[in-house]
Design a protein around this nucleic acid. Structure first.
Lengths: 210, 210
DNA sequence: CTAACGTTTGTCCAAACGGTCAAAAATTGC
DNA sequence: GCAATTTTTGACCGTTTGGACAAACGTTAG
């Protein structure tokens, strides 16, 4: 049942990377239907038939992109584990997520686009792999709560809120920059956001406070 | 310079509403380019030329939709004012925003789609109207902080976080439902979210806590 | 050098797209 | 009830789209 890794020449590997890079640009800003093969081909510096020599269908490019993205996308959450101080763990998770929003905004927007359209291509993964990963991590967080190490809350909505706030700085970047204006919209906005979010989440989770 | 309101017959008013309703469905899930006039026309129960009798271009439909949306979209923030207890004010704002995500998810997704694509049609509004509105409200929040009525934080990132978390329940709805599963993904998720978010934000803003 | 293989290109296609138009049908005002 | 107006329709147009294909071009190993 496992697909065998196809043998590829040096040129094939290089050109496929070039195409995926160009496609990430195009898909992430225009969505699947909004992006055209011509557009991607031009961004990759090749002709349309040439591009179709490497990826036979438009969907193939998109699916390769999404599959690759999902592996790295959930890595920060996977790294959240039981050892160490809960607040330090969660703080590190928030920081990693925000770094991903800063360093991989196109991936974030691609994912957002797919979800906005009802996740037609990744629904099984959401209900399977993602759900069980979140279930696992929610159980860890609940363990911390029962042990009195952090305040009691809903761990699922806690995770949703961390996703929402961190990804917001990638997905809604133009809005953030427009509102902050030229003075505050520089690269410092990510450091400001990191400080704010750490305070917001960790402050509300400190056991003594609520 | 102000556009005069065009006179319209009863049928024109009704059919235009029908079209806008169908277009909201279509645009919010497929984006501007991804949606087709045929698709919208069929959803509105009329032929393509008939639809084009009421809106001469596809962009006209989209722009009417966006303009109408923006008026109601910023209403909750507009209602945030200086009278009353700060924590009550902010709690009410969060609740109103979450209600909008629950009651108008298509509008939220339409807006998200536009921002994801770089806000080509509403950039002036973001830099103008939206920025000055947020500047105003951030000043109010800063006033509360200086008076010691709430803890010190960045008011801009506070507003961003409220936007991000509440809109997440509209924009990423399929993901939220997939992760919560059939048991917890029912309509109760909005009440759970409301409780969680109120605790998260108000807890971290209580002056004594930090 | 050359045969085999990998890569690139120009040309072509059918479907889907946004949009037009004149004529038919329905509605409205008198 | 009829004329003027508004609404609906079917046929049509040029363009863009995803994709196919054979021929031309490069590359590489023997």
């Amino acid at each position: 049942m496992e697909a065998v890794a196809p043998r590829r020449t040096r040129i094939q590997k290089e050109k496929r990377e070039l195409i995926l890079e160009a496609a990430l640009d195009t898909f992430s800003t225009h969505g699947f239907r909004g992006a055209t093969i011509d557009q991607i081909a031009e961004a990759a510096g090749m002709s349309k038939p040439n591009l179709l020599y490497y990826f036979h269908r438009k969907e193939d490019i998109f699916e390769t992109l999404i599959q690759r993205l999902l592996i790295t996308w959930l890595q920060p959450l996977r790294e959240l584990d039981d050892v160490g101080d809960p607040l330090t763990e969660l703080g590190a998770y928030i920081r990693r997520k925000l770094e991903m929003a800063r360093d991989y905004p196109r991936e974030s927007r691609l994912f957002a686009n797919e979800i906005l359209q009802g996740a037609p291509r990744i629904m099984p993964m959401l209900e399977g792999e993602l759900k069980s990963l979140v279930d696992d991590k929610a159980a860890i967080i609940e363990g911390w709560m029962r042990a009195g190490r952090i305040a009691e809350t809903d761990p699922y909505h806690l995770i949703f809120s961390i996703w929402a706030t961190t990804q917001h700085y990638a997905d809604f970047d133009v809005q953030v920059r427009a509102v902050l204006g030229p003075e505050r919209g520089g690269n410092a906005r990510f450091e400001d956001a990191a400080q704010f979010l750490e305070r917001l989440f960790l402050g509300s989770l400190r056991p003594q406070c609520p």
